[in-house]
């Protein structure tokens, strides 16, 4: 294990988040089995009060999760000097088998946390807790992921031993390598560009239509926003990053987080994450539009979430397109 201050703080943070989620899940289990709104028993009163506590805890968990995702990538980047062959986060995450799973789990947990908060927000709009059981069912589903993240991250840090030779980002994301990342990097640029702009355009059109007319394209928009999230990450590795680095062989998705590239990665990834949370939120709320006490609230929330996703994705597209247009670098012929 490497006793780096940031490693210790990530460790402490994830254990705390895990404990907070477990605490909430414990009451979630009671709510799932014992919740009865018609009852005036002491247990029911306690549970009703506990729901306030749990929504507060989950809001904090969500914020901490976002922080820890970026701190994790940043730490991996900083630690790269300790490993021969690793030049940035890409190499450090590849030192053992737990690096990339930790990062993926962090992203998943962030999106799941966002979904829970959307559900919670909608539930609070109604007077009769219509979504209470669904909400806590989701919480029970989130808990194992959060525990898994803590364990996998712990395993990752415990198995870090300095000086292990790893592939650097230049070889891991180079066009000659094998594996998913290398497959993305080797994807022809023109089809990838078409795919990216097509998916973005379709999502935004569907979103806009849904925002103005309501109904109809909502489910499609929600699904497309998730697809677009994946396509955008792929596009980032395949060609967007290349424009930022002005180097046709460099496909690393982490180096754009660094100061040399004006920290451009932060707004880009934040926009993508916000877009994904908004889009999945819209989809999560769809089955509950018919509930009597939520009939007015849900369409309004969905509209706001749609707007958030649209703005986020447009920001992402604007920044990347700007970078592509205003650089002297040309990728033609690759």
């Amino acid at each position: 294990m490497i006793m780096h201050p940031a490693v210790i703080s990530l460790f402490v943070g994830s254990v705390l988040v895990c404990l907070m989620v477990l605490y909430s899940a414990r009451y979630g289990a009671t709510i799932l089995t014992r919740w009865d709104l018609r009852s005036g028993s002491e247990l029911q009163l306690t549970l009703e009060r506990k729901t306030y506590l749990i929504s507060t805890i989950m809001s904090y968990v969500f914020v901490f999760q976002l922080f820890s995702l970026f701190l994790f990538i940043f730490t991996a980047d900083k630690l790269s000097t300790l490993f021969t062959g690793a030049m940035c986060a890409a190499g450090t995450l590849n030192v053992n088998n737990f690096g990339y799973p930790t990062m993926v789990l962090k992203v998943i947990n962030f999106i799941l946390g966002g979904m829970w908060l959307v559900l919670n927000h909608a539930d609070n709009r109604a007077f009769d807790y219509p979504l209470i059981k669904k909400k806590y069912l989701l919480l029970m589903a989130i808990a194992p992921f959060v525990i898994a993240e803590t364990i996998v991250q712990g395993a990752y840090f415990l198995n870090l031993k300095a000086h292990v030779i790893t592939s650097c980002c230049g070889s891991l994301f180079s066009t000659e390598g094998e594996g998913i990342q290398a497959g993305l990097a080797g994807f022809p640029v023109i089809p990838m560009k078409i795919l990216f702009y097509g998916a973005m355009g379709l999502t935004c059109l569907a979103g806009l239509y849904f925002y103005i007319k309501g109904r109809a394209t909502g489910v499609f928009f929600s699904l497309m926003s998730i697809v677009t999230f994946g396509v955008s990450v792929a596009a980032l590795i395949s060609f967007i990053s290349v424009y930022f680095y002005e180097l046709p062989t460099h496909h690393c998705p982490f180096c754009i987080l660094q100061g040399e590239y004006h920290y451009a990665g932060y707004p880009l990834y934040l926009a993508l994450l916000c877009g994904a949370v908004g889009g999945t939120g819209v989809g999560t709320l769809f089955p509950f539009r018919k509930i009597e006490s939520l009939k007015d609230a849900i369409p309004l929330i969905q509209k706001r979430l749609t707007l958030m996703t649209l703005l986020s994705y447009l920001l992402f597209t604007a920044v990347t397109t700007g970078a592509i247009i205003f650089t002297d670098f040309r990728l033609d012929g690759y």
Binding site: P5, A6, I8, S9, L10, V12, G13, L16, F64, F67, S68, F70, L71, F74, T75
Partner: peptide, 11 residues
């Protein structure tokens, strides 16, 4: 500062 935040504000 982010590392510091996790060590102090989160607990």
């Amino acid at each position: 500062l982010a590392a510091l935040f996790f060590l102090t504000v989160v607990p």
